[in-house]
Simulated assay, not measured.
Amino acid sequence: MALFDLPLDELREYRLTRPEPDGFDDFWAGTLADARRAALPPGLSAVPTPLTGVTTHDVTFTGYAGQPIRAWLNRPATATGPLPVVVEFIGYGGGRGLPLDWLIWASAGYAHLIMDTRGQGGGWRGGDTPDPDEYGAGPAHPGVMTRGVGAPETYYYRRLITDAVRAVETATELPGVDASRVVVAGKSQGGALALAAAGLVPDLVAAVVSGVPFLCDIRRALTITDSDPFHEVVRFLRANPGAAERTLRTLDHVDSVHFARRITAPAILSTALMDATCPPSGVFAAYHAIQGPKQIEVYEWDGHDGGRTHFDVAALEFVDDRLN
């Protein structure tokens, strides 16, 4: 993919000026209140693995509407005392996979809670959590961008974002965790969920890691990239042109930029100038909206790989500097 978005000097000035939808805060406050009323204590069970340096627990907690969500909890095997915890969210189409897929943060001395993604896990890494509210058959392929998109109340990402917030709240309740040092992290869809969770429960989040985040400035992204997942919406609207107004209104309720405006914790983001999956203008719009201390890593020659392990190193150093 060649350069397709604004030049870098214009990206560094780009802001989203469109207002958030009316009733945005009330919508999310009501959604989260319902989930909390239905919440149950998390369940943990030890999982044997071949690893000697990391211990793993299989975690089940309650997300949207009290529905069960699976997660892994990895910890350094020799850790003593409460640890900072990283709550990580997964990219589009992927599930939690196996505990051995998630070793970076535990190897660096953190507790690491990896949230499974409801109804996904049919694309590139398996999942274990169905989406019973709409699609009880479990993981699906190829996409979720238009599931329930006719209204904010029925939209898939209402459920998934609520799960992400509940994962953060659950992390503060886990044994051996320092609830004052909670990090939210993820890339692509996971990066969007990190921004959403940090914006919805800012008092619980001590740092944010959001690599090439999805769902940023959605209306613009739909018009400048032909890549999925955004292009799923375009194909849907070609078939259903009369649904455009209500579809865009629904998508406004999950735009990462609106959540970013509520973030006060230190944050590190990444973007790649050749990323047609999550266009850089949207990432910069989210970055500029963040209220707390922040930095952005720009990878001029990358696509949606977005810095690869170079960004992982930057994220580890960023979090270490602020939490330890």
Score class of each variant (00 low, 15 high):
V205I: 14
V205K: 15
V205D: 03
A206L: 07
A206P: 11
A206W: 08
A206E: 11
A206V: 08
A207Q: 03
A207S: 13
A207C: 04
A207M: 10
A207T: 11
A207G: 06
A207N: 04
V208Q: 09
V208A: 13
V208L: 09
V209Q: 08
V209Y: 08
V209P: 05
S210R: 08
S210V: 10
G211N: 12
G211V: 06
V212K: 02
V212Q: 01
V212D: 08
V212S: 12
V212N: 09
V212G: 09
P213M: 13
P213L: 07
F214T: 06
F214P: 06
F214Q: 02
F214D: 01
F214E: 01
L215M: 14
L215S: 06
L215F: 15
L215V: 03
L215T: 04
C216W: 01
C216E: 08
C216P: 11
C216M: 12
C216N: 14
D217M: 05
D217Y: 08
D217S: 13
D217N: 15
D217R: 06
D217H: 12
D217E: 14
D217A: 15
I218L: 10
I218P: 11
I218F: 10
I218Q: 02
I218R: 11
I218N: 06
I218D: 01
R219Q: 13
R219V: 05
R219K: 12
R219T: 13
R220T: 15
R220I: 07
R220D: 09
A221C: 12
A221S: 15
A221K: 00
A221I: 00
A221T: 15
A221G: 11
A221N: 04
A221L: 04
L222T: 14
L222Y: 11
L222K: 14
L222G: 06
L222E: 08
L222W: 12
T223N: 14
T223D: 14
T223V: 10
T223G: 13
T223Y: 05
T223W: 05
I224C: 05
I224F: 06
I224Q: 09
I224G: 12
I224R: 09
I224L: 12
T225N: 08
T225H: 06
T225L: 03
T225V: 07
D226I: 10
D226M: 08
D226Q: 05
D226P: 03
S227K: 10
S227N: 02
S227R: 06
S227A: 13
S227V: 07
S227H: 08
D228M: 10
P229E: 00
P229H: 00
P229T: 05
P229G: 06
P229N: 02
H231A: 15
H231Y: 15
H231K: 12
H231T: 03
H231M: 10
V233T: 10
V233Q: 09
V233C: 02
V233D: 00
V233K: 04
V234T: 15
V234C: 02
V234R: 13
V234I: 11
V234W: 00
R235Q: 13
R235T: 14
R235K: 15
R235L: 09
R235Y: 01
F236S: 10
F236C: 04
F236I: 10
F236Q: 02
F236D: 05
F236G: 03
L237A: 05
L237T: 00
L237D: 03
L237C: 00
L237I: 01
L237M: 02
L237V: 04
